[in-house]
Computed example of a mutant assay.
Amino acid sequence: MHKHRTVPKLLSGLFALERRLPRHHEKYKFITEELYNTRAGYSGELEYDRYMKEVQTDFPHAVLHDLSLHHEGVYFQIDSLFITPDSIFISEIKNRADRIIVTANPTQFLQVNNKGESQLFRSPIAEVERKVQFLRKWLGRRNVNIPVKGIIVFAYNNQMQIEGEPRLPIYTSYEAPTFFRSLKPEKKIIEKRDISRIAIELARSHREYNPYPLVTHYKIQPHTLKKGVFCSTCTVPSIMIWTARRWECRLCGKRESDSHMAGIEEWFMLMPHKLTNQAFCEFTGIKDRHTAKRLLARSKLKQQGIGRGSYYELIP
């Protein structure tokens, strides 16, 4: 395994944004749906990864999950990549519930629920074909000439109805390992060392998609967010207060000295402004600027500037 999947920045940020967005906010429903879909998508990808651990072949191969690459000013994201001696496969993973109907001419994907209601969704085949073209160009710039192919994978064991022959193979996560195990490379375009070299270069070239700050990404006014440091124990969001050199939750009684660290992380996920002492006080609810300065100094941050013009940045 040359690259494992990690929790998307967008998912972490959406958790923070949903908690800080008032329920009456005009975008609250939209953000909760974004969070649900992003979490479901990540869960489906993890399901695929779990099954792919079963893949053992008699030919050299490399597996990379969750790649974000850049070519000619365009970023393109690949859910999973499988490199063999004669081809590279892009897996496009879809997390869709209910029954899936696929028609080949014209190419259409329908999701049908248990009430018989159908919903047309964007063809993942078109998505994969776009990524295939970009990856071919990306490889070509590095003098790697090998066929790039694509498959569609539905994360769970959906009831599938495929009418005609779609342009790309379609499987469930459970079936995907069988597909890869059954491959029989016809000719050796690249050697084992080349497979490893390409995989290492792909992993090095990965640039994680960064949607921060989310208030800018989703066009939300920063002042509409809830302020304060949230208790990490309470299931219902509870604001802690700073007292006697520590944070205390009035709801469950929990006491901690570093609860503000989560608040700092959320600031850099959500807010578009520089983190100053005053901004830290307003965001966390700390009343005393000297206390805020001491907490910021103890945090994993780098101070820039001096005096009233100083601000804090995350240490890379």
Rank of each mutant, 00 (worst) to 15 (best):
M1T: 12
K9L: 10
K9N: 03
L10K: 01
L21V: 06
R23C: 09
R23Y: 12
K27V: 08
Y36S: 14
N37M: 08
A40E: 12
G41D: 00
Y42V: 00
Y42A: 05
L46H: 01
Y51E: 07
F59D: 11
P60F: 04
A62S: 02
L67I: 09
H70D: 11
G73I: 10
V74T: 14
Q77S: 08
Q77R: 05
I78L: 15
S80A: 14
I83R: 01
S87N: 10
N95K: 10
N95E: 13
N95A: 12
A97E: 15
V102C: 11
T103W: 00
N105G: 04
P106W: 05
V112S: 03
N113P: 02
N113E: 04
L120M: 10
L120V: 10
I125R: 06
A126K: 08
A126Y: 11
V128S: 07
E129K: 11
R136M: 13
R136A: 10
R141H: 14
V144I: 14
V148D: 06
I152K: 09
F154C: 06
N157L: 05
E165R: 13
L168C: 06
P169K: 04
I170S: 00
Y171S: 04
S173F: 02
F179C: 03
R181V: 11
P185A: 05
E191R: 09
E191L: 00
R193D: 11
D194F: 06
R197E: 12
L202A: 00
R204G: 02
S205N: 15
S205R: 13
H206Y: 04
V215I: 13
H217C: 08
Y218D: 07
I220P: 09
L225Y: 01
K226W: 08
K227P: 08
T233F: 12
V236H: 14
M240W: 04
M240C: 09
T243M: 07
R246Q: 14
W247G: 00
W247V: 02
E248N: 06
G253T: 03
H273W: 11
K274L: 15
L275F: 08
A279C: 02
C281R: 15
D288K: 05
R289A: 11
K300L: 13
K300A: 14
K302I: 13
K302T: 12
G305H: 05
G309Y: 08
Y311N: 02
L314N: 09
I315D: 13
